[in-house]
């Protein structure tokens, strides 16, 4: 394994989450190492979403522990996870379509101006925000100039995805989690988003990629976490494991030795 180093950046041990009689997480483990792309695959209802929600503070597990850099952490809300440097690109993207690209990038963490108006009434430093938004998008190679004020609703699906990824990459200091980033996209746009994911990785941010698309997973992932029946079944190396085998493990047709 090329990327595995000793201490996982983000780790979960024995996570349990029950909804009434349904056990969504059944002593699930999880490890993400620095600098890697970890794909999480699993059949519908395997508990992937609940696992990710627990890691991002959207769900509070009944049992188990979460560690960052080996230190135990406790996320009570998505805001807690964000403050710890974990950014999530939701499948719904969580963008406000009628707002501009710059407004969306800074939604919920706007920069105040340094002047009196900023201190008294919370006036925004729009110039700085637009500059930073522009920088961030061009750094990821997804933006031509003078369009930062465009509303998000005027963008295509792939472009919106790119904005959501850019937002996560701009603010995620430690981890970026992406939920089905290519599910709603065509071939050409998927290609661009995969490139974008590799660009983000190239900047040193580890990525958790939840996806149903096996070719995409096998193309970009360093390791593949296979989730089944509420827990981690195994982690495979995409260079050593074939796609049909991974699917077979995911669906239970193949058991792990």
């Amino acid at each position: 394994m090329s990327v595995s180093q000793d201490v996982p950046l983000l780790q979960a041990r024995n996570l349990v989450k029950r909804y009434g009689h349904v056990v969504a997480l059944d002593r699930a483990d999880f490890e993400l190492y620095p600098g890697e792309i970890l794909a999480v695959i699993g059949d519908n209802g395997a508990g992937k979403s609940t696992l990710i929600k627990a890691l991002t503070g959207a769900v509070i597990p009944d049992e188990g522990e979460i560690f960052m850099d080996g230190e135990p952490v406790r996320f009570r809300s998505p805001l807690d996870a964000r403050r710890a440097g974990i950014e999530t690109v939701y499948q719904t993207l969580a963008l406000a379509p009628a707002l501009s690209i710059a407004d969306n990038l800074f939604l919920g963490r706007e920069q105040r101006s340094k002047g009196i108006l900023g201190r008294l009434v919370g006036a925004l430093d729009r110039a700085a925000m637009q500059r930073r938004a522009q920088d961030e998008l061009s750094r990821l190679g997804i933006m031509t100039v003078q369009s930062i004020k465009q509303t998000v609703e005027t963008l295509s699906g792939g472009q919106r995805q790119a904005i959501a990824v850019a937002r996560a990459a701009a603010f995620g200091s430690r981890v970026v989690i992406m939920d089905e980033p290519t599910a709603a996209l065509g071939v050409r746009e998927s290609r661009r988003v995969l490139d974008l994911i590799l660009t983000v990785k190239g900047r040193g941010l580890p990525i958790v990629l939840i996806s149903h698309n096996m070719p995409h997973v096998f193309e970009v992932a360093d390791r593949i976490h296979i989730h089944r029946l509420g827990r981690r079944l195994t982690v495979v190396d995409p260079r050593l494991c074939s796609m049909p085998d991974a699917v077979a493990m995911m669906t239970g047709a193949l058991t792990v030795a």
């Binding site: 993207l93 969580a94 963008l95 406000a96 939604l107 919920g108 963490r109």
Partner: peptide, 8 residues
């Protein structure tokens, strides 16, 4: 929903 996820 997007606003909530964005921390508003």
């Amino acid at each position: 929903d997007a606003s909530r996820l964005a921390g508003i």
